[in-house]
Computed example of a mutant assay.
Amino acid sequence: MRAFRRLLGRYHRLAATAVAALAAACAVVALRPETASVTVLVAAKNLSGGVLTARDVTTAAFRPGTVPDGALRPGVPVAGKVLAGPARRGEPITDVRLLGPGLLAAHGPGTVATPVRVADSEAARLLSPGDVVNVLAASATWEGAVPARVVAEGVTVLAGLGDRSDHGALVVLATTAEQAVRLASAQAGGHLSITIGPRG
């Protein structure tokens, strides 16, 4: 019986030592700072969209598993590219936020990005990426004004370039190649305006 008690006591001491060691190891892991990180490009300030400059972006480190898919890494050139919509300071810049193949992929095959100048800058200011619009063209001849006609129906706004002047505002639309041709012809012969419809 005495030998059994000694054996049982030794077992308890070993078990207590193992538990203490495990608790210490867990504490060390919990207190150790996360050393692994992924560095990506983020907005350096609140951005309204439009053409980016090198000063508009900076880098930030994120823990693995928290980085959005398609986040751009340092070294990817972004100056001169078009941010399709507003971004908050510190927000990662992803491929689908920039005007290009990533953004167009969401609109199906055969989609092209078509810049058009809308005559009414204030109306263009109401637009946000994802809005669905009809584009109308109006022109004038020596006989007088010609009634406006729809030249592109149900097209999606990709971006507003922030380029507003006396000649209107530049907007980028997701169109088919055929619609792009009609828009170019209409723009050359008159002024373009828009009506805004429901999304989706």
Results as ranks from 00 to 15, higher is better:
R2L: 13
A3I: 00
A3G: 11
F4Y: 11
R5Y: 13
R6L: 12
L7M: 12
R10S: 15
H12K: 10
A16F: 09
A24V: 15
A24E: 14
V28N: 07
V29N: 14
V29Q: 15
R32D: 04
P33K: 06
E34A: 15
S37V: 00
S37G: 12
T39Y: 11
L41S: 04
A43I: 02
A44I: 03
K45F: 09
K45C: 06
L47Y: 04
S48D: 12
V51Y: 11
A54R: 07
A54W: 06
R55S: 15
R55P: 00
R55F: 12
T59H: 08
T59E: 13
A60F: 09
A60N: 10
A61E: 07
F62S: 02
F62V: 05
R63E: 12
P64F: 06
P68K: 05
D69M: 10
G70H: 03
P74F: 08
V76N: 10
V76M: 09
A79M: 10
G80D: 05
K81M: 10
L83M: 05
A84E: 07
A87Q: 06
A87C: 11
A87H: 04
A87K: 04
R89F: 08
E91W: 07
P92Y: 02
I93N: 02
I93M: 09
I93A: 05
T94P: 05
V96W: 10
L99Q: 01
G102N: 05
L104G: 02
L104N: 02
A106C: 08
H107G: 06
G110R: 07
G110D: 08
V112P: 01
T114P: 01
V116E: 01
V118M: 09
V118K: 03
D120N: 15
A123L: 10
A124M: 03
R125K: 13
G130Q: 03
V133R: 02
V133L: 05
N134G: 14
L136G: 05
A137M: 05
T141A: 11
W142Q: 13
E143G: 14
V146S: 07
V146L: 07
V146D: 04
R149W: 06
V150Y: 06
V151S: 01
V151A: 03
E153F: 12
E153S: 15
G154I: 00
V155H: 04
T156I: 01
V157T: 05
A159P: 01
A159I: 01
G162R: 04
G162K: 05
S165H: 08
D166P: 10
H167K: 15
G168K: 05
A169I: 00
A169K: 00
L170W: 13
L170T: 15
V172Q: 02
V172H: 04
L173A: 01
T175N: 04
T175E: 02
A177H: 14
E178H: 12
E178S: 11
A180W: 00
V181R: 15
L183C: 07
A184F: 09
S185C: 05
A186I: 00
Q187V: 00
Q187Y: 09
Q187S: 13
Q187P: 01
A188G: 08
L192C: 06
L192K: 02
L192V: 03
S193Y: 07
I194N: 02
I194D: 01
T195N: 08
T195D: 09
I196S: 02
I196M: 07
G197M: 09
P198K: 13
R199N: 08
G200K: 11
